[in-house]
Design a protein around this nucleic acid. Structure first.
Lengths: 187, 187
DNA sequence: AAAATGGTATACCGATCGGTAAACAAAGCG
DNA sequence: CGCTTTGTTTACCGATCGGTATACCATTTT
């Protein structure tokens, strides 16, 4: 399943041909269609569900139920780890850009809505005003996606130099932004 | 050429099959290969060059040569118009996400580097400190890309309601950020 | 009018696409 | 042991892929 996800991440939905999937997973065509009778669509849907489950467990739930500061700290760690400091992109974001979005509209839309909602909730509980929490939550999720795009565009996938990439810089900037917002009185 | 660009934008490089291109442009296969003997790669390269030229003319050059406030104002207008308030995505950003990036690495990388550099230059000339200008320029370009991803993910391509979309909100927030940075002494 | 030019339409190529079917292997279980 | 279940292999399907070749058409040039 991780390998399956990787194929979609690297090549996109259209670019993830069955032969590439076979090569990456080592499974024959028959095996793939045994597990996913619905074909490529079902594979992609399963991967999306898997991603969603991971984020639900590692990001959304902590944001919802833990003290906001803890939840936020966990989110930054999880995001930096999951996206490999910008070397790996967001599958959902990639699907959102092309026509693939229409096929998996519910999953794509739900993923981002949920993320923003959980983040907004945590920020609210951390003391931010309603409007400010909503705006900041949206801005943070949006910036993460943008950082992934830019990080990949500038070819920062060198195995070394984890430190000063666009993604790491952006992540630090976001944390600062949250920190300042929580210290200061809501604007 | 605009139609050609649209096919790549909507379907991505892999999803932009020659038959779809033919359908969209109305040209026969022969005509396409007459103008682009190099096939799909050359078409995509031409589209990328076209996009780059447009941004050079409408965004980068104004940022470089006009007074910074004017250049910035033009950029916001151009960006909002070009991306149709979030209803149209950035072709270069989309290419950057999947394996297509490797094929057009130079163009993709150059596009973003140039954008950030021009923006940084304008911010510098507007009075920002070196580090702050660089960080803000990166953050703005990154946020635009993120706003496009999120805007599409949340299906905000309804023809009506131009006003309060994720993209419009994000654009306004960025303008505020720049405005505040220019007013205040550099942090 | 003849020839060359710029562009188009069409048929076709091998390769690969996503997907199906059937034969087969290996356990699980009575 | 036989029988089913679970999974894999393999061959194959029609459709479509990107790309080529050729014939054709409309100008323009000579």
């Amino acid at each position: 399943m991780p390998q399956l996800a990787e194929v979609f991440r690297v090549h996109g939905f259209e670019g993830a041909s069955l032969s590439r999937i076979r090569a990456e997973t080592g499974l024959g065509k028959g095996s793939l269609y045994h597990f996913f009778p619905g074909g490529k669509d079902e594979m992609a849907a399963a991967v999306l569900a898997d991603v969603d489950a991971w984020f639900l467990r590692e990001v959304f739930s902590p944001l919802d139920s833990l003290p906001p500061e803890e939840g936020l700290a966990l989110m930054w760690r999880a995001v930096d780890g999951y996206f490999a400091s910008g070397r790996r992109i967001c599958l959902v974001g990639a699907f959102a850009l092309d026509a693939t979005r229409d096929r998996f509209a519910a999953a794509v839309c739900g993923y981002f809505e949920r993320w923003i909602a959980s983040l907004r909730g945590a920020l609210l509980r951390a003391g931010l005003a309603n409007a400010r929490a909503a705006a900041l939550a949206e801005d943070l999720v949006l910036s993460i996606q943008g950082a992934l795009v830019l990080s990949r565009a500038l070819r920062e996938d060198a195995p070394a130099s984890h430190k000063d990439t666009v993604f790491s810089r952006a992540l630090r900037r976001m944390q600062d932004e949250v920190g300042q917002a929580l210290k200061r009185p809501p604007a």
